[in-house]
Write a protein that binds this DNA or RNA. Sequence first.
DNA 1: TATACATTTCGAAACATGTCGAAGTGTAGA
DNA 2: TCTACACTTCGACATGTTTCGAAATGTATA
Lengths: 92, 92
Amino acid sequence: MFKALANPHRLALFQRLLTCCAPGMACDPDEERHHVGQLGEGLEIAPSTLSHHLKELNRAGLVQMQRRGKHVECWVEPATLEALTAFLSGKT
Amino acid sequence: MFKALANPHRLALFQRLLTCCAPGMACDPDEERHHVGQLGEGLEIAPSTLSHHLKELNRAGLVQMQRRGKHVECWVEPATLEALTAFLSGKT
DNA sequence: TATACATTTCGAAACATGTCGAAGTGTAGA
DNA sequence: TCTACACTTCGACATGTTTCGAAATGTATA
């Protein structure tokens, strides 16, 4: 997990998912969740690179992904977040 | 900080400092704090590598270091730990 | 001061990661 | 079925990281 967050681009992507709304939820009940292309906006990386980074975040268990039509939705996995904070509080 | 914790050896070192006792304190009032050589025990890495890793943890603000005679004491910086958990709870 | 011990600095080799473009897959809509 | 869009996979190259041994520094003690 730490390895996944060690890259500036991946950390930026994760932070977007983290700060916009509650983990696992859409920002608004009516709104859609974030999708891949949207997360990459303003980051100035190629789509293939973006895809690679989100795959790493997914592999680490930090981010969940699911196809919905043309887009692929992304959201933070709350359980993994809890595991991380538990580690940092010494409850290993 | 995430970059510093992304390496297995550094994570192991950090975890030793984290789980043994309260951050910034000795395990026991009478005991000494951890020192560099002690932290590397069982990790099977060269002293120069050990030194390099602790330097990285120090650079990231996760670990404090201070020379005390022949040894160099190490302990976890509590403020940095708090900053990390704050980030993970979305309070950025 | 000479010696032993603990740790750091430096340079080099092996290995891992980040990045892209080109080509591929999956999906919606004409 | 054809086209456009969203994303992924692959292969290649540049860059960054890990690791070590040799040599240097710092500290206590004989």
